[in-house]
Amino acid sequence: MRLLLVEDEDLLRAQLVKALEDNDYIVDSVQDGELGLFQANEFAYDAAIIDLGLPKINGIDLIKAIRAEGKVFPILILTARDKWTDKVEGLDAGADDYVVKPFQIEEIKARLNALLRRAAGFAKPSLDFAHLSLDTSAKKLMVSDNQVELTAYEYKVLEYLMLHPGQVVSKMELTEHLYEQDYDRDSNVLEVFVRRLRQKLDPEESLKPIDTVRGQGYRFNVPPN
């Protein structure tokens, strides 16, 4: 999952980047609204965390501008102003949730997780498809009620595919959302992850949950429960 973080306070930004990266998110962080808008327009993000008090373009205007560009990824507001007028204004501008400073990192993670899930249409923290169940808060995969161990990258790929069920996800898109920008985008690596995932999800090849769409990418083809 690739996140955009716009926060002007250097220390706080560094803390958040570290905490989120520890949680296997790919984080692009910038310190002002102008850069935030540039990043949001240039790259495909799964979610954004935006501080409301930003230099150059303030948070509210940044959110409005992002929405005006037609971007629908969920936006979490960070705000020091805990007045309802500010919260309502932010949510009204197009944000989806808010966290008031100071906050517990855990709270940010939980809210973010919920937003990502919700954006994909899942109401519960677990993504359930037939006998497959991915717990997004505990980051665990259950296949027919048995826990299956996944590497961090396998988890990321599966989570991304499950959050876009029925959609063709190109290798390009996957690498964009799952890797750092300077990562060597060798698509063979992805093929290896997908092959391993298929084995772990469906050892008997009865369900075949991940299709390969020739020349286009992958598709998670099991309808959600």
Partner: peptide, 21 residues
């Protein structure tokens, strides 16, 4: 006052983050 809140709470958030990490 809003700005004051902002400038007081951001350092609090930093402290809180440092402690947690």
């Amino acid at each position: 006052l809003g700005d004051l809140a902002h400038s007081l709470k951001t350092p609090l958030a930093v402290i809180s983050g440092v402690v947690q990490q």
